[in-house]
Design a protein around this nucleic acid. Structure first.
Lengths: 196, 196
DNA sequence: ACGCCTGATGTCAGTAGCTGTCATCCCTGG
DNA sequence: CCAGGGATGACAGCTACTGACATCAGGCGT
């Protein structure tokens, strides 16, 4: 199996993140990334369909974790309960050891609009896949899309908070808190305001 | 004022939509769009920061309508009530006469991942602006982001439905229906599960 | 009426992202 | 020891996009 040096894609990812973080995304060419690990530009584009993609691998395993969570939900669960299971399942991909790495990665993304665009797209794809999984469990439309989008929104806010400087809570805890907030905001909280 | 032919950007947009619809997005070069209205590629990129942007003008007026709606909400409104006002305000930008044009435009976008990416980004920017407007009205976090994202989700689903073949209902009606569904989905169904 | 200024456009050269094609190379299996 | 095949290198080429400079047409002050 290991004819050439294995883990080519991983080495490219690591080198890319390092160069992006130090020199900036646009100031780093694909050729430079490749050269820094002894490969050619052509090989870079054989492993990653475009330059941004080098930061967005694992999207696959990422979405898979959500879908596993959907499948693990007990039969007869309401849509948002299924989404809750998906969120819990996904939280496993963000253990404490990963926080530092996620932070530097996010700093790179935050500094480049093209990367932000890709990240949003990744979350949108996740929402689409999640909605499809909900539909397969019998959830109708537009409930499936609404629940899926809401779940991804909760995930996104939880992630942003998880990354924040000084944040100590676990990813799962944050998800749960944000989910409660969502229920409060979209629920009949309206009545509270009426008395305020 | 009219030194050169006015409305250059508009002519480019119209030509681009036509070419994208007939030939496809990737099969149409920026130079071709420019030539088709008697201009050069360089001028095209002076009016639009990138090739995709030619389809996403009006984003500005679009977001402004949402923000107007936020400001028009009565004092003391709950977050989702403010969002509801924003949605009603935005619905004004999608009258019946516009449905056909929106349809062809969406067909072009649906056929190209790069354009879908841009559109999602546009909606994400809208959500960010909406959340900021909510914060200015005193809504805290994460409620502001949750409400804003939910509003944009409702808008997106309503738009998808509005575009659908044979759909007759008005944009405002669709928005209201989807919003009700959202409340139902995220409502206190969770408590049911706790006893299940 | 003259000329200056200004802003939109044209021209040209160049960079970088990305692709197709073909050769090469080296492990794996027979 | 040979054949196959997947991963890579080498090279040419297209297109999106940018910077620098020239041009050109009207407005405006004198």
């Amino acid at each position: 199996m290991a004819r050439w040096e294995p883990g080519t894609a991983e080495r490219l990812q690591q080198a890319a993140l390092h160069l992006f973080a130090t020199r900036g995304f646009e100031q780093t060419t694909a050729a430079e990334i490749a050269q820094s690990v002894g490969l050619t530009e052509r090989t870079f584009f054989r492993h990653f369909s475009d330059k941004r993609e080098v930061l967005f691998r694992g999207q696959q395993r990422f979405a898979a974790s959500f879908l596993d969570g959907v499948r693990s939900a007990p039969p007869g669960s309401a849509p948002m309960e299924i989404v809750e299971c998906a969120l819990r399942s996904a939280a496993a991909l963000f253990p404490e050891e990963r926080r530092a790495h996620s932070r530097t990665r996010q700093q790179v993304i935050d500094q480049n609009p093209a990367l932000q665009e890709r990240e949003r797209n990744k979350l949108a794809d996740l929402a689409t896949a999640l909605a499809e999984a909900l539909r397969e469990r019998g959830v109708g439309e537009p409930a499936a899309t609404l629940a899926a989008q809401s779940g991804v929104t909760v995930f996104g806010i939880a992630f942003t908070q998880w990354i924040r400087d000084g944040e100590q809570r676990s990813f799962a805890d944050l998800e749960a808190e944000i989910l409660d907030e969502l229920r409060a905001v979209t629920g009949k909280t309206a009545s509270v305001a009426q008395f305020a």
